[in-house]
Design a binder for these strands. Structure first.
Length: 204
DNA sequence: GGCTTGATCCAG
DNA sequence: TGGATCAAGCCG
């Protein structure tokens, strides 16, 4: 039930927000259908001193503007002309920090997600991968700038109307380098990708 | 592994 | 105004 407040996305460092989102449940309500999944894989991007970020070195543009706004808003953009990526804007105005959600473990609306993904069997292909997450949850570019305390996209401790969350020990968080940012130079080596150790619902 | 695909960005 | 670029995913 209780949605994370917008201030939940403000912490000492964007990597702290990223880790805190593991195990939380990401929901969308599209066309009256609620779909949701536990966050199992995230990446942190810092607006300062991180060449992996679209906003590195204080770069501002129409696309990155959302990241410079207050925490708790969706940053959705298109990659490779095909795939949508869902990020959560973190920390204070002008910080331009963001957390990319790369994979979820299905929790609500599995049938609907399978329909959106055009799959007949349940597998990692349902929800693992940043573009796949958006497709499964029905997140479109129009969700860019959406506040995460509203009724369209939100994150909560537990799935809607359920008592059971996804429990794991805090020492089960695994850190590794982020994916697909070779252009970021030595910043590509930063271990800012976080996964839940032992959970199979992560990208390859 | 090779192709797809288009919004965004900056050089000219 | 245009071409290079890109936080992937698909098929085989």
């Amino acid at each position: 039930m209780s949605k994370l407040s917008l201030s939940s996305y403000k912490k000492s460092h964007v990597t702290e927000v990223a880790k805190s989102l593991l195990g939380k449940c990401l929901h969308t309500k599209v066309d009256g259908q609620i779909t949701a999944g536990f966050i199992t894989e995230v990446e942190a991007y810092s607006g300062r001193n991180d060449r992996g970020s679209h906003a590195h070195n204080g770069k501002r543009s129409k696309r990155t503007e959302v990241m410079y706004g207050p925490p708790g808003y969706a940053y959705v953009y298109l990659c490779y002309g095909i795939h949508r990526m869902f990020n959560v804007v973190c920390n204070d105005v002008d910080m331009a920090d963001a957390v990319l959600v790369r994979a979820i473990q299905p929790a609500i609306g599995v049938e609907e997600m399978m329909k959106r993904r055009n799959l007949k069997k349940i597998s990692k292909r349902l929800t693992c991968g940043p573009g796949i997450v958006c497709q499964a949850l029905g997140i479109e570019l129009t969700e860019n700038g959406t506040p995460l305390n509203g009724g369209r996209v939100w994150i909560a401790e537990k799935p809607w109307r359920r008592k059971e969350g996804l429990d794991f020990k805090s020492n089960a968080i695994e850190a590794s380098p982020r994916i697909g940012i070779d252009y970021a130079g030595e910043d590509a080596n930063l271990p800012w990708r976080y996964t839940i150790r032992g959970n199979d619902w992560v990208s390859a």
